[in-house]
Design a protein around this nucleic acid. Structure first.
Lengths: 227, 227
DNA sequence: TAGGCGCATATTGTCGACAATCTACCTTTT
DNA sequence: AAAAGGTAGATTGTCGACAATATGCGCCTA
């Protein structure tokens, strides 16, 4: 049997469990951005020893949610405009590539599934006008599918395991709901159409634009906050 | 003082030291590709306890040199054609992006340094005609500089910390010396020229071609080995 | 004889304690 | 009074032992 992707795999070890809990806590701001991580404190809080906790911290560092300095401890990352732009710069390129590869490698069945997913989103989105969480979850779901469709394990690993938690953290903590909801759906549709037509070049272009639009939207919000 | 990049930072902790040793051992095939990793054995071999060893293993997994399965242990990665192609596919894109960004962000001083580096390589390469190791080291050095020049920390992290050990492993173990030595130098020159001219688009294109050429070279060698 | 079950062994995951290092406050000196 | 040094406290890094899980062999059964 084919091994499920690590990100989707359910936790089997104590380190896995505490990793997911801390990940959620950091992403949702339950543990404040920029705050110092105390190993003894977290160990007490989650009721386990420091060994599995440190294993979890190592993986948190891997997905850029914390930064560690030897003998000095770990801090939760601080969110910044420059950091966000650097992250989206990379996303634009990597997800563009993912689209191009998805156009080559996705099966017709997988494409059909994504289309069904979008139809689902559309109907549920009509009901919950502008409710940001569902939009976000749906958006991430779409992007996940396309990324997995690239069939490039390194690319999948980077996007799904290492970058997306940070993307979500920015979205949640800077409140990126915005008025892009319905427009994003149309863009998703156009992207999956290009993939279905096996037009990798177009899919690449559309995805880059899609993410660039999202990035501009974020920049505007940040600018307004700054004033 | 600005913190040096992790990859270049000298080891301060026992886990750091053993990480570098095992990294080297795996990359150079001293620990065979595909072989099982025994924690107790390695702990004895490097004369430390399993705690720092496991820390090192976590980081080895991060740079794709080993694969771990919970409760079942770790194996050194197996080298494959499909894996190599997936890796280079990503490199092409990411280093292309790095070039584009380097054209925007590298200082004139940094560009001058890279040019001096290339001149050094050229002279030392004339002496050691076709000696593959030095070529490789020089090549990596050039790529490192350009990547750092992108000034995008996420991109730097992915390329220098997560992907390059595996690239080196393929190069060393599949013996990628080849006749591309002098041609590669010319390509490097062209790339740094484009960066110096602040022509990001061209630098991107040239770097993609440069890596694609390297990839085709590898494919040929693999094909010949397969027959 | 082939296949499946169960136990012995070995390996990984986790724990609590100790050692090494850093941080912060206080003292001392110019 | 400001700066440098030292010391106490806390935190991280490392260790050895125990618990939980997987691997492999022998045995039993069909």
């Amino acid at each position: 049997m084919h091994q499920a992707h690590p990100a989707l795999r359910q936790p089997v070890t104590a380190a896995d469990r505490v990793l997911q809990e801390i990940q959620r806590a950091i992403v949702e701001g339950d543990i404040a951005a920029g705050s110092k991580i105390s190993e003894p404190e977290l160990a007490r809080r989650f009721d386990l020893s420091r060994a599995p906790l440190r294993e979890a911290l190592a993986r948190l560092e891997r997905c850029h949610l914390i930064e560690r300095i030897p003998n000095a401890g770990a801090r939760v990352v601080t969110l910044s405009t420059t950091g966000l732009l650097a992250l989206y710069q990379l996303r634009e390129n990597l997800e563009g590539l993912a689209c191009k590869l998805a156009a080559e490698h996705m099966t017709d069945a997988e494409i059909t599934e994504v289309r069904q997913l979008l139809d689902q989103h559309l109907s549920s989105q009509r009901v919950r006008e502008g409710e940001s969480y569902y939009q976000e979850a749906g958006d991430l779901d779409f992007h996940y599918r396309v990324i997995l469709g690239s069939k490039n394990s390194y690319l999948i690993n980077i996007l799904c395991d290492e970058l997306y938690y940070l993307v979500r953290m920015y979205r949640v903590q800077l409140g990126m709901n915005g008025p892009r909801v319905s427009r994003a759906f149309d863009e998703h549709k156009a992207i999956i159409n290009a993939i279905a037509n096996r037009d990798g070049e177009l899919a690449d272009l559309l995805m880059r634009r899609h993410i660039a639009a999202s990035r501009r939207n974020i920049e505007l919000q940040l600018q307004q906050m700054g004033t």
